[in-house]
Design a binder for these strands. Structure first.
Lengths: 322, 322
DNA sequence: ATCCTGGGTGACAACGTTGTCTGCCTCACC
DNA sequence: GGTGAGGCAGACAACGTTGTCACCCAGGAT
C-alpha cells in the first residue's frame, strides 16, 4: 500500500480510502490510485485489516468427517451461507474424537474466528464457555450441548422419526422388529432408540436391540444372533445411514423388511428400494449458519433450539410382509 | 499479552518468549507468566502473529462441490495433510463456475493463504500467474492447467481407465458400446472419450457417443435415441460417477451391460453390481497437499505432474453378455 | 579493583492496515 | 477583502505480535 501511495503520489491513507470506497476522494485522484494498484498488482493484506478491525470474517466448522455424505452436505450448506455473508469457512474433521475437537476449537479461537459451527463429539464442552464469554458465538448442529451450556442448537426430530419408521413397519404387520443402532452415548442414537421403543410399546424386546459402534463384523454378528432367536425378527430398523448400508451388506440378499434412518443416494435403485426416514442435512447446515449470523449481528436473545422435521419415504423394503 | 505482562510484573517481550518457548527465560519467571496466562485465559492473537511473520499457516482449497462424494473425499485427505503440517484449511466450492472460482482465489490470496489446491474450472487461469509470481504456490488436482501455466498437477489416468473399461466390455463380446460422457470442455470428459475411442478402434461409431452436461432428461434422451438405432448398443460405458447413477435410473431396470468411470458407494449392492473403473480421490488429495508442502518448504524444482493409476473393479454389470 | 562473559530482561520498531484529527484549498457569501 | 463551509488530503497512532538490540548484573579471570 505504501508502494501504491508513492507510485500514485498520494498518502497512504488516500490509498486506503480508495481501496475501501470511502467517500471524499477526488475522482481524478482515485483513478490515479486505481491505476497504480493495477500496475503494481496490489491486493490488500487482509491479515492487517483483521488485526485492525478485530473481526476476521471467518467462521470455523467442526464436523465429524468431511467425507461423510451427511456432513459434507451440511458443510456445503454452511459454506453457501458463510460465503453469502462475505466470510470464509475454515473446516476440520474431529473424527468423533473429543480431544481432537477441543484442539481444533482452540486453534480456531486462537485465529479469532468470528463464530463456530460444530457437530459436537463427546459430552464435555465446558471448555467452550470461556470462548463464548470472550464473545465467540457457537452453534451446535445434529447434537445438543450438555445441560448448562447455553448455545443455539439445530437438531432433527430423532425420536419422532424413529417412531414413524417403526410404526410404518408395525403397520405392515411386523411384530418382531429389530433395531440396529449405534453407540448409545451418541445423542442421536439414544433418541432414535427412544422413539423405536415408544413405538414398540409392549412388543419391545431387548434381545432385538443392538447399540454399539457399527462395524461390518458387529452388525453381522448382531444380525446372526437375532436370527437365531426363537422368534426371530421379521423386520429391521437401522438407526443411521452407515448402519443401513452395513446391514444391507450383512443381509447378503436375504429378503427382510427394512427401514433406515437417513436417506442415501441410490436408496431408490436397490431392489427393493430402501424405505427411509429422511432428514435434511443441507437445511440443518443452512439454519445453523443463519443462527450464527444472527448472533454475529448482535442478537443476544436466549439461545434458540430448532428441531427440523423428518419425513418417511416408503420405497418397498419397508413394505415387505412378515 | 500486555495484560499478562503487567499481571506477571514482566515486560511484554518476556511473555512473548514464554508463549513461544524461546530459551533464555528464568524458569521462575516463566512459571509466573504461565500462571498469569492461565488466570487471565489469554490466548495469542494469531492475526497479529501472522501479520508479523508473513505466513498464515493456512491453505485454500477450491473444489467444484464440497458435497460431491468424490470431492469431499479429496477434501478430507487434503485436510488431514494440512492439519498434520500444523496449518488450517479454508475450503470453498466453485460450482464449476470460472468467475466464482476466480473470486474465491482472489479472496484466498487477499487473506494471504500460504498455498492453493484447486480443481480448476474453465480454461483460463492466467489470473493465477500474478499470485504464483507473488509467491503463492498452487497445485491443480483432477484437471491440468492450460498450456503455459506452470503448476504442480495430480491427475488420474483418464484415457487409460476409459480404455480399460471399454476393452473389458469388448472382451465380453460387445461390439456396440455406447459412451455417455460429459461436457467435452471438461478435461476429464475429453480424455475419457479419447480412451474409449482408441479402445473401440474401427468399431467406433459417433452415433453411440453423447458428450454434454448430463441431466436426467439428457441422459434419458440420449439413451432412447441410441436404442432406436438400427444396430442399438448392447453395452454402456458411462464417463463419470454422476452419469453412471443417472444412467442407472434412466435404464429403469432394463438389463444392459454397463461399466462406469468412478467407483461409488453401494455400487456392489445393486443387482447386478456395477463394474467400475475406480480412481482414488483420497490419494489424489493427499498427494496434491504433499506437493504443495514441498513447495512451501522451498522446493523450486520444475513443476511436477503426477498421474495416478486407476483400477478396474468387475462386479457383474460389465460381464453381462450382449 | 577492573575487565570480561553471558544469562536474563526490557525498550523499541516494524508488520500493513484503518480511525481520528488536523490542515489546506477553493468557493460562495456577506 | 474577510469569513465560514465543505471537499479533499495527509500525519499519526493504534491493533497485537515478534526480531533486534541494548541493558543490567552476578561471577570468574586478570
Amino acid at each position: 500500500m505504501k508502494d501504491v501511495a508513492s507510485a500514485a503520489g498520494v498518502a497512504l491513507k488516500t490509498v486506503s480510502r480508495v481501496v475501501n470506497d470511502e467517500p471524499g476522494v477526488h475522482p481524478a485522484t482515485a483513478a490515479r490510485v486505481r491505476e497504480a494498484i493495477d500496475r503494481l498488482g496490489y491486493s490488500r493484506n487482509e491479515s492487517a485489516r483483521v488485526l485492525r478491525a478485530g473481526r476476521t470474517s471467518t467462521v470455523g466448522l467442526v464436523i465429524e468427517d468431511l467425507a461423510d455424505p451427511f456432513y459434507s452436505a451440511l458443510g456445503r450448506a454452511v459454506e453457501d451461507v458463510v460465503i453469502g455473508e462475505g466470510c470464509l469457512l475454515l473446516s476440520a474433521s474431529s473424527s468423533e474424537d473429543p480431544a481432537r475437537e477441543r484442539e481444533l476449537v482452540r486453534t480456531f479461537c486462537a485465529r479469532r474466528v468470528d463464530g463456530l459451527i460444530m457437530v459436537p463429539a463427546g459430552h464435555d464442552h465446558s471448555y467452550l464457555r470461556q470462548e463464548l464469554e470472550a464473545g465467540t458465538p457457537a452453534v451446535f448442529a445434529d447434537r445438543p450441548p450438555e445441560p448448562g451450556l447455553d448455545v443455539d442448537t439445530v437438531l432433527c426430530d430423532n425420536a419422532g422419526g424413529a417412531e414413524l419408521a417403526t410404526r410404518h413397519l408395525l403397520a405392515h404387520g411386523h411384530r418382531r422388529i429389530a433395531f440396529l443402532g449405534d453407540d448409545p452415548s451418541i445423542f442421536t442414537a439414544a433418541r432414535r432408540l427412544h422413539g423405536y421403543r415408544s413405538a414398540m410399546g409392549h412388543l419391545y424386546d431387548e434381545r432385538l436391540v443392538a447399540m454399539r459402534t457399527p462395524t461390518p463384523g458387529s452388525v453381522r454378528a448382531d444380525l446372526e444372533r437375532m436370527l437365531l432367536l426363537d422368534r426371530p425378527p421379521t423386520a429391521l430398523f437401522t438407526g443411521n445411514g452407515r448402519v443401513t448400508v452395513t446391514a444391507l451388506r450383512a443381509l447378503e440378499g436375504r429378503r427382510m423388511a427394512l427401514a433406515g434412518f437417513d436417506d442415501f443416494e441410490l436408496a431408490d435403485l436397490l431392489a427393493p428400494g430402501v424405505t427411509v426416514v429422511a432428514q435434511d442435512p443441507a437445511g440443518m447446515g443452512r439454519i445453523a449458519a443463519e443462527l450464527l449470523f444472527r448472533r454475529l449481528s448482535g442478537d443476544d436473545a436466549p439461545s434458540r433450539h430448532v428441531t427440523l422435521p423428518v419425513r418417511l419415504i416408503p420405497r418397498g423394503s419397508g413394505e415387505l410382509p412378515p
